[in-house]
Design a protein around this nucleic acid. Structure first.
Lengths: 188, 188
DNA sequence: CCTGAGTGGAACATTCATGTTCCGAAAAAG
DNA sequence: CTTTTTCGGAACATGAATGTTCCACTCAGG
């Protein structure tokens, strides 16, 4: 009853723990399991029921994180339309990830928790998309694909911080992010 | 003999501890003092001699960090030449900060350790510079100064990561960073 | 009304980072 | 060379986080 199809209740609890963990750890990377339990509205022992050790929780977060990235990538339908338009769709989808994004950025050690071959499916899809943009001329070909990908991520992080620290509405920072991305990849 | 002019040896040791702390904490924000001591080639007790408590070390890092930012800002001579050129000089100076940059970026909570009124001298100077660029038309006036500043920082972070993770020479990522910055602030 | 899965909480053992003290060795200062 | 400063390490105390066990409570489904 651990690897079986979750019985609704189990899935809900597990999800609540992961969401709370991401949220709390994003604010304080050194948060204790008790903090996370409190944020999840769950007993500390319940966390150990789902994730025996702290490292198991971290691994769980990585998997959860990758899963959400993957689905966001799918939703962006990267192979439809021009590459620059697809990249903007992707940017919007990733922006929605919010706290997950902040967390991933501030915990580079997350790579130690999982089996990242430093190349996920989404990474590769993004790389392909940018190269398509290079070919069709909608993305500045003098900027390496890896660089464009890195800039995309850090712009997203900036946008999130911009709305969080400077108390700007999310749509404002998202539109700044998109405009900046457009200028960055633009060929002239 | 604590606040007096450092006797050479003390200054050197203190510096070594701070450098090691920045380096180690950049990789793992939850590193222990023993880890830091090892990285600094110093006894753990020596760290306590300079920074009685962990929080004192964090405060020390903040101060060290601010100090380096300030001198880098000075060197960029922000009031000479056009605003966009000055911004590029600043970008180059900040790039040299390296690990300090990564650390600061990944630890926004650093504000808790110091008396930052969320506005340092450098922040204000940068803000003024961008506004000067808005006025003289060398920086896209439709991008708020705060946003441009945030983007500058995240581009620097990207550049550093780009050379670290993808094993690119530093001058390559710096020039990508500068080119991207130019496109971002450019008015057309 | 049972039953069992899912849960919360108390109690406990253990590990680990932290902070302190003390002393002898090494290095710098004079 | 002598004195003072600085350092490293052992030893210890403490507190927080972690991990484990056990029991009672709740609640949905039969």
């Amino acid at each position: 009853m651990d690897t079986d199809a979750p019985t609704g209740a189990r899935a809900r609890t597990r999800r609540a723990i992961l969401d709370a963990a991401v949220e709390v750890l994003a604010k304080n990377p050194a948060a204790s399991l008790a903090d996370i339990a409190a944020a999840a509205g769950v007993g500390r022992t319940t966390i150990h029921r789902y994730f025996p050790e702290r490292s198991d929780l971290m691994t769980g977060i990585s998997a959860y994180f990758l899963e959400r990235i993957e689905t966001a990538t799918m939703r962006a339908r990267l192979d439809e339309g021009t590459a620059d338009a697809a990249l903007e769709r992707l940017c919007q989808e990733y922006f929605e990830l919010g706290g997950v994004l902040t967390f991933a950025f501030e915990n580079p050690q997350m790579q130690d928790w999982t089996d990242w071959e430093t190349e996920t499916e989404s990474d590769k899809a993004l790389e392909r998309l940018i190269e398509r943009g290079h070919a069709e001329g909608s993305i500045d070909a003098s900027l390496p694909a890896g660089w464009v990908a890195d800039v995309l991520w850090s712009l997203l992080y900036s946008a999130w911080q911009y709305s969080r620290l400077r108390e700007q509405p999310k749509h404002t920072s998202l539109s700044l992010c998109l405009r900046t991305l457009r200028k960055t990849i633009g060929t002239e």
